[in-house]
Computed example of a mutant assay.
Amino acid sequence: MSDLRAIPDLPLYTRSQLALKNGQDHPAIWIAYRGYIYDVSKSRLWFRGMHYEHWAGQDLTDELADAPHTEEVFLRFEIIGKLATTNP
């Protein structure tokens, strides 16, 4: 799927920056999947930064295997950045 959504010149965010967008302290709700950061703030399923047992502000790549849906669900959300591989 990432080949279909490749977007050049996206801002790079660290895991620490992503963690701040958890829907608790700020209204923004972001999640990461396969190196991209998605804004899920408008989704009623991510109300207050929680979606079933998953919390926003994290990389959810490894958790998709347990989900009842495929990665196609990410096509519904805007890609707003890329996840840095290491924190500074």
Rank of each mutant, 00 (worst) to 15 (best):
D25C: 01
A19R: 15
I31R: 00
Q17T: 13
I31V: 15
D25T: 11
I7A: 05
D9R: 11
T14C: 06
Y33K: 09
A6W: 00
H26L: 14
G35V: 06
L10F: 07
L20C: 11
P27T: 10
D25Y: 04
L12Y: 14
P27S: 13
L18H: 13
L20K: 08
P8E: 07
A32N: 08
R5C: 09
Y36R: 14
R34I: 01
L20N: 12
K21M: 14
A32K: 11
A19C: 04
A28Y: 12
Y13S: 09
Y13L: 12
H26D: 14
P27K: 15
K21I: 03
L18S: 08
D9P: 05
I31D: 04
A19I: 03
R15D: 07
H26R: 15
I7R: 05
V40Q: 04
L18N: 12
D39A: 03
T14H: 09
Y33L: 05
R15T: 09
W30C: 13
R5Q: 12
W30D: 12
Y36M: 06
P11H: 07
L20T: 12
L12C: 13
H26Y: 09
Y33A: 02
P8T: 00
S16G: 10
D39Q: 01
W30L: 11
L10N: 00
G23R: 11
A28Q: 14
P8I: 00
D9G: 01
I29C: 09
Q24K: 15
A28P: 05
L12K: 02
D25G: 09
D9L: 08
T14Y: 05
L20Y: 12
Q17C: 07
Y36D: 05
L20I: 05
K21V: 02
V40A: 01
Y33P: 15
Y33S: 08
Y38T: 03
W30N: 10
D39R: 06
R5V: 10
I29P: 15
G23T: 09
N22C: 06
D9V: 02
L10Q: 06
P27E: 11
I29V: 15
Y33V: 10
G35W: 04
Q24N: 11
D25P: 10
R15F: 01
A32D: 03
Y38L: 06
I31T: 04
H26C: 11
Y13E: 06
V40I: 08
P11I: 00
P8A: 09
Y36W: 08
L12E: 09
S16T: 14
L20P: 02
Y38S: 06
Q24D: 11
D9N: 13
I37Q: 05
Y36F: 13
V40G: 07
R5L: 15
W30A: 10
Q24S: 06
Y38W: 08
R5S: 09
G23L: 07
P8G: 01
G35C: 02
N22M: 02
Q24E: 14
R15P: 02
L20H: 12
S16W: 00
D9S: 10
N22S: 09
L20R: 09
Y13N: 12
A19M: 07
I37V: 12
R34S: 01
D25M: 06
V40R: 07
Y36G: 05
L20M: 13
I29Q: 03
A6K: 10
D9Y: 01
A6C: 08
